[in-house]
């Protein structure tokens, strides 16, 4: 770890301004990702801005019936909030499937969106990694890539975004709210928040260098039933090999609407809106689900150790939909 200066600003505006004026500054929220990276000198900020005293820890109802989640709301608190559990169950479930109780008590909404990949080689400064050192090469493409992407990757980087929370937020069409050093506020739809690696894998989001996340807005609740199915190598405390977030509004055999998002398959939560259209008004059965999955997986490419993810996505989408149908009132 390198030496750094440390600051605890009192207001959101002061925090954002400080970020803008210090060249190598970073916010520290829960610190559950940043501190690990600093110890390994993968991140080496010279100035740390503690944002734990700024409030931003409320969950409020918005005028359109949605909710606004403060950037500093802890993952545990968010998962346990009654509004979230009732109206956004997929988010609550996704959060509870992540990390461990201790980590969720520290981890924040903003920090979770910005957590970095768990690619083994990214974490090892002795190995080439384009994400860590631009142009140094990617160790994973021809290396051990069990956890890596099957969608949207490039030959420069095949890392996945590890967040469970972000997958649920993508399903819900959340919006990320920011403020910059000059006090200018911006709203970024979650679909545009995370980036694909392309030739710039070191750029993971479209957050600007001088911007701070103040909160995340969820639109009014969706009709239908929601679920989050995370598939992993052990029962807890493991990142998703793949995950499926789904919401289906079905009456009778037909769906009014359906959404499906995937985690653990790409550099960002994966969702193909055009594919979902095929389900609205359609009978939900193995055939229609398979057709959506085909479109979700269009262009998928597996590497030496992760080709099982192709079959796993199909199986898990199937399982998630079956679970929703099983629990839908009209079938009880």
């Amino acid at each position: 770890m390198k030496s750094f200066s440390f600051e605890q600003p009192a207001t959101v505006q002061a925090a954002a301004a400080s970020l803008a004026t210090h060249a190598d500054a970073k916010f520290i929220a829960g610190g559950t990702n940043l501190l690990d990276l600093m110890k390994l000198e993968i991140e080496a900020p010279t100035h740390l801005i503690d944002i734990n005293r700024l409030g931003l820890d409320q969950i409020e109802t918005t005028d359109d019936g949605g909710v606004r989640i403060g950037a500093m709301v802890r993952n545990s608190d968010l998962a346990a909030h009654s509004r979230i559990r009732i109206d956004y169950a997929v988010l609550s479930r996704a959060l509870l499937s992540g990390a461990s109780g201790q980590l969720r008590n520290k981890a924040t909404t903003g920090g979770n969106l910005l957590q970095r990949t768990r690619c083994y080689y990214f974490y090892d400064t002795a190995r080439p990694c384009n994400k860590r050192v631009a142009g140094s090469g990617c160790s994973a493409v021809a290396g051990f890539n069990r956890m890596h992407a099957i969608l949207g990757a490039s030959d420069q980087c095949i890392a996945v975004h590890p967040s469970d929370m972000a997958v649920a937020m993508r399903l819900l069409d959340a919006e990320v709210e920011t403020i910059n050093g000059s006090g200018v506020r911006r709203v970024i739809p979650i679909a545009e928040f995370h980036r694909l690696p392309a030739t710039t894998p070191h750029l993971e989001t479209n957050l600007r260098r001088d911007e701070m996340i103040t909160g995340v807005k969820l639109p009014a609740p969706l009709p239908g039933r929601q679920t989050y199915r995370k598939v992993r190598d052990r029962a807890s405390y493991a990142f998703a090999l793949i995950s499926v977030a789904a919401v289906i509004d079905a009456s009778g055999e037909r769906a009014q609407s359906a959404r499906i998002a995937l985690g653990g398959v790409a550099h960002k939560p994966w969702r193909v809106e055009s594919a979902e259209l095929g389900l609205s008004g359609a009978t939900i059965n193995v055939k229609s689900i398979d057709a959506v999955t085909d479109q979700l997986l269009a262009g998928a490419r597996a590497y030496s150790d992760n080709d099982f993810k192709l079959a796993l996505v199909r199986r898990t989408v199937h399982a998630a939909v079956a679970e929703i149908l099983k629990n839908s009132p009209q079938w009880k």
Binding site: N285, R315, H318, A319, A322, W331
Partner: peptide, 22 residues
């Protein structure tokens, strides 16, 4: 495990509505 499981006869069907399997 999934490499050894046959897709059709292992996927979950218990409790799902009949049209689902069609």
């Amino acid at each position: 495990v999934i490499a050894g499981l046959k897709l059709q006869n292992t996927l979950s069907t218990a409790g799902v509505p009949p049209h689902f399997k069609s």
